[in-house]
Amino acid sequence: MRLDQYPDGGEWTVSEIDEFPEDNHRREVVEGSLILRPAQTPRHSSLVMHICGALDRTRPEAFDVVHGMQIRFAENTALVPDLVAVRADCKPMTTTFFDPEDVVLAVEVVDDRSRFLDRVLKPAIYAAAGIPHFWRVESAGAVVHAHRLDPDKAEYLRMSAIEARIRVRQPWEVDAPLATRI
Rank of each mutant, 00 (worst) to 15 (best):
3 L>W: 08
4 D>V: 00
4 D>A: 03
6 Y>Q: 12
6 Y>E: 14
7 P>Q: 12
14 V>T: 13
15 S>I: 00
20 F>K: 06
21 P>R: 06
22 E>D: 13
22 E>I: 11
26 R>S: 08
27 R>L: 13
34 L>E: 06
36 L>K: 09
38 P>K: 09
39 A>W: 10
39 A>V: 12
41 T>Q: 15
42 P>L: 13
42 P>S: 12
44 H>G: 04
45 S>C: 10
46 S>I: 11
47 L>A: 08
48 V>F: 04
50 H>K: 08
52 C>T: 15
53 G>P: 04
53 G>R: 14
53 G>W: 15
58 T>C: 13
61 E>R: 14
64 D>F: 11
65 V>N: 02
68 G>F: 07
69 M>S: 09
71 I>M: 06
71 I>Y: 05
75 E>F: 09
77 T>I: 11
78 A>R: 00
78 A>W: 00
79 L>P: 04
89 D>F: 10
90 C>D: 03
93 M>L: 15
93 M>Q: 14
94 T>Q: 11
95 T>E: 13
95 T>D: 08
96 T>N: 09
97 F>N: 06
103 V>M: 09
106 A>T: 02
107 V>G: 01
107 V>F: 00
110 V>Q: 00
111 D>V: 02
113 R>H: 12
115 R>P: 02
116 F>G: 09
117 L>F: 11
119 R>V: 12
121 L>Y: 02
125 I>T: 13
125 I>C: 08
125 I>L: 15
126 Y>T: 10
126 Y>C: 07
127 A>Q: 05
130 G>W: 12
133 H>A: 09
133 H>M: 09
134 F>R: 10
134 F>T: 07
136 R>M: 13
136 R>K: 12
138 E>T: 02
139 S>G: 05
141 G>K: 08
141 G>I: 01
145 H>L: 11
151 P>V: 10
154 A>R: 13
156 Y>E: 03
157 L>G: 00
159 M>Q: 12
160 S>T: 13
163 E>G: 06
165 R>F: 07
165 R>I: 02
166 I>C: 00
167 R>E: 15
168 V>A: 07
169 R>N: 14
172 W>G: 01
173 E>C: 08
173 E>V: 13
175 D>W: 10
177 P>F: 08
180 T>G: 06
